[in-house]
Computed example of a mutant assay.
Amino acid sequence: MNTFEKNVKIKLTSTIRPIDGETENYEMWLNGSFIEKSGKAYLRYTEVHEDQTVKTTVKLGSEQALILRNGAVNMRLPFSRDHIENGHYETQMGTLPINTNTHSLIHEENSELNVISGKFKVQYDLIISGQPVGKYTLEIQYSEGQ
């Protein structure tokens, strides 16, 4: 079982185009970990929003990917290129079924000079309880050190 972990700096850029309403853009800089386990790559980081903590794990891939969030937000967001995937979002009122319709999924890893870095980008439609809510783009760039 080969597992290794490196500390990385993460730049997270998110664009949300709701069905009705204004486009929203977010950018965050975070410290996290890049983990390679059994040939699969993961990013792990913690977001803090107004004293609420969310631990996020991203399973990176170009065909399939998965975002798991635990803490103030609990959700499972799976991505599969050209397939609609089933996930869920837990609220105080209960669990909502969510679907992702993934349009593009890219994971590029650079391992030049033994420095871990890469880019993950996913574009998808988010559907909550059967209703399309918007088009989402998430881009994560990560690199070791500096």
Rank of each mutant, 00 (worst) to 15 (best):
K40N: 13
T100N: 02
G21S: 03
E27D: 08
Q64C: 05
E27A: 08
K59E: 14
V8G: 06
K40C: 07
T57I: 04
L113E: 15
T91H: 02
E108G: 10
N31V: 09
D82T: 04
S111F: 14
L77G: 02
F4L: 05
N101K: 13
E50V: 02
I10M: 05
E108H: 14
I98Y: 03
R81V: 09
K9M: 04
N31C: 10
E112I: 07
E5S: 11
E90N: 03
D82H: 10
E109L: 15
Y89G: 02
Q92D: 14
I116F: 02
V58Y: 08
F79V: 00
W29K: 15
H88I: 02
L77K: 06
V58I: 10
N99E: 09
P78H: 04
I67T: 10
E5H: 02
K59Y: 11
A41P: 02
T91A: 01
N114C: 15
L66C: 01
V115T: 12
E47I: 03
E63F: 05
G71K: 04
E22R: 05
E63Y: 04
F34T: 05
F4S: 07
L105R: 08
I67D: 06
Q92M: 15
P18L: 00
K6F: 06
T53K: 12
G21E: 01
S38W: 10
I98C: 00
N86S: 08
A65C: 03
K40R: 14
E63C: 02
K59N: 09
N31T: 12
V58E: 05
N99M: 09
T23L: 02
T100E: 00
N25T: 09
I106M: 15
N70K: 15
L30A: 01
V54Q: 15
I84L: 04
A72C: 00
E47C: 04
T100A: 00
H49G: 09
Y26S: 11
F34V: 06
R81K: 14
S14D: 11
E112G: 09
Q64D: 12
S104V: 04
H83D: 12
S62E: 08
G32H: 03
H103G: 14
G94R: 01
I16T: 12
I10Q: 01
E22W: 06
H88Y: 09
M75W: 01
G21T: 01
E85I: 01
M93F: 13
T95D: 00
D51G: 03
D20N: 15
H103M: 14
T100Y: 01
Y42T: 00
P18N: 00
H83P: 04
N86H: 07
T102C: 11
L30N: 04
K55C: 12
R69I: 00
K37T: 03
L30T: 01
S80D: 06
Q64K: 15
N7F: 08
Q64H: 11
F34H: 13
R44I: 09
T53I: 13
Q92T: 15
I35L: 07
G61I: 07
R81C: 07
S111Q: 14
M93N: 10
R76Y: 00
Q64E: 13
